[in-house]
């Protein structure tokens, strides 16, 4: 069954400060949503709250998967039900080899995978090569000393192995130069459009990555609320005029 993620009037705060002020959103598997907004509008908070980051407190509303409430479910349970988050600044895991990490997380999702250890290495290496990723990174600590671009590729590699049903992609374009951006966008596209198609909530500050990816719906978030939704032309308009005009309309 295809997965549907729903946010119903979701409110969340951190250290007493309200960041999400009533978000309602419905993402079906196979749909591609883009979420745009200026710095500090709460986009990253939204991605973390969906994934169950305990540092945020939910103060109202809820999160639902196929109608079942998951607002209080631990992070790993959400992941096991098909949600995935690529991090804007993925943390370093000292001494935890990327390959070990990939294998452990893969086996959580595919416990009956018949591949031997050796076959899995070959499989991961082929996936990494598709992303133009240096395969020696696999034997390094997760994100340990990785460049910005390498970290983003490692995130996409994980996504392409786990094949989540709905992925939240948080500012995968940040800190990349134009060439790296194009490469990352292409890999991302291959990953999310491979069958079975994922649902995607792609968070970005800029329109530039969207031109490679053609989202179905574009949402604009300002000050903890989604205040406008539209098709791709909305992203182009933001590119041209910035966010101020939306504030003025509202």
């Amino acid at each position: 069954m295809a997965l549907t993620l729903e946010l119903r009037d979701l409110h969340a705060e951190i250290e007493g400060k309200e960041i999400l002020k009533g978000i309602t959103l419905r993402i079906e598997q196979g749909q591609f949503h883009a979420l745009m907004g200026p710095n500090g509008s709460g986009k990253t908070t939204l991605s973390r709250v969906i994934m169950g980051d305990r540092r945020y407190k939910i103060t109202g509303g809820g999160i639902f998967l196929n109608g079942e409430e998951i607002t209080n479910l631990p992070t790993y349970e959400r992941a096991r039900r098909g949600l995935f988050l690529t991090f804007q600044n993925p943390v370093e895991l000292q001494g935890v080899k990327l390959f070990t990490f990939l294998r452990s997380s893969y086996l959580v999702h595919y416990p009956n995978d018949g591949r031997s250890f050796q076959e899995f290495i070959t499989y991961v290496q082929s996936k990494a090569r598709l992303l133009n990723m240096d395969t020696t990174l696999l034997s390094r600590g997760v994100n340990e000393g990785f460049s910005g671009g390498e970290r983003k590729k490692a995130e996409i590699l994980q996504m392409s192995l786990i094949k989540p049903r709905i992925a939240i992609v948080d500012e995968i374009d940040s800190g990349l130069d134009v060439d790296a951006l194009e490469a990352v966008a292409k890999s991302l596209k291959d990953t999310i459009y491979s069958e079975p198609r994922m649902g995607v909530l792609l968070i970005t500050h800029y329109q530039r990555i969207l031109k490679y990816l053609s989202p179905d719906i574009v949402h604009v978030m300002i000050d903890g609320k989604i205040i406008m939704s539209g098709d791709y032309s909305l992203a182009l308009k933001i590119e041209e005029k910035g966010y101020e005009w939306i504030r003025e309309i509202k």
Binding site: G52, D53, A79, V91, F101, S105
Partner: peptide, 11 residues
């Protein structure tokens, strides 16, 4: 670190 690893499905 915990959040990152758990977001991959590990307890």
């Amino acid at each position: 670190q915990l959040f990152y690893i758990m977001s991959r499905g590990l307890t």
